Simulated scan of single mutants.
Amino acid sequence: MSYIKIWIHAVWGTKNRLPLLKEPVLSQVCKHILDNAKEKGIYINTINGYDEHLHILMLLKHDCSISKQMQLLNGESAFWINKNSVTKANFEWADKYFAASVSDDKIDKVRAYICNQQEHHKRYTFAEEYKLFLRGIGYENDLG
């Protein structure tokens, strides 16, 4: 078995940034993603979001690429949301997402940031937050 420890902070939004994750939907979706991840051997440290997006702090599985792990989580969750009529409207995630590695010394800061989403979004929209993330890692273009 290979041993790796790569922390990933992933963020993805709903298609067209529709606010489909208002409570209690957000809690249901987060719980399902946690349960699904556990079944697939994916360790999620922290998960939270806001009306139109989710943040996850997780370890990358030794046998997964980031894109594969994202598909296992967001692709399956969209299917589950629609199958169980969790939202009134048809549910889709946006095609693009943000994912970045996190060093061990930043884990507590990222965890706190994810846990504080409701407070954070009293000041910033998801679009503003996303642009700040991209600017912070050297991308100036909006990946939407």
Results as ranks from 00 to 15, higher is better:
23 E>G: 04
21 L>W: 01
14 T>E: 05
58 M>R: 08
83 K>F: 15
64 C>P: 00
30 C>T: 10
77 S>K: 07
140 E>S: 02
49 G>K: 00
63 D>H: 06
67 S>N: 05
68 K>L: 04
16 N>D: 14
79 F>P: 01
82 N>T: 04
110 V>H: 13
80 W>K: 02
23 E>S: 11
48 N>I: 00
25 V>P: 00
62 H>C: 08
48 N>V: 03
111 R>K: 12
34 L>C: 10
56 I>S: 04
44 I>W: 13
115 C>K: 10
106 K>W: 13
104 D>F: 05
23 E>H: 03
112 A>H: 12
45 N>Y: 10
62 H>Y: 04
84 N>Q: 14
132 L>P: 13
95 D>W: 07
4 I>K: 15
3 Y>D: 12
74 N>F: 08
112 A>M: 13
87 T>G: 12
94 A>S: 12
104 D>E: 12
39 E>T: 07
5 K>S: 09
51 D>R: 06
134 L>W: 02
78 A>I: 09
112 A>L: 15
124 Y>N: 09
57 L>F: 01
17 R>H: 03
68 K>F: 11
113 Y>N: 03
92 E>M: 15
117 Q>H: 04
34 L>R: 07
10 A>I: 09
125 T>N: 01
22 K>V: 02
42 I>W: 06
61 K>L: 07
113 Y>S: 06
135 R>H: 13
8 I>G: 04
13 G>L: 07
36 N>D: 09
133 F>C: 02
141 N>R: 14
66 I>R: 14
118 Q>N: 07
22 K>M: 06
139 Y>P: 03
22 K>F: 06
119 E>H: 11
53 H>N: 02
68 K>W: 10
42 I>D: 01
9 H>Y: 12
42 I>Y: 08
118 Q>P: 04
121 H>G: 05
131 K>D: 06
26 L>T: 06
102 V>M: 11
132 L>R: 02
115 C>M: 15
20 L>A: 06
119 E>M: 14
69 Q>K: 02
38 K>P: 06
113 Y>P: 01
44 I>D: 00
60 L>R: 04
69 Q>S: 02
29 V>T: 03
45 N>R: 14
35 D>L: 12
126 F>A: 00
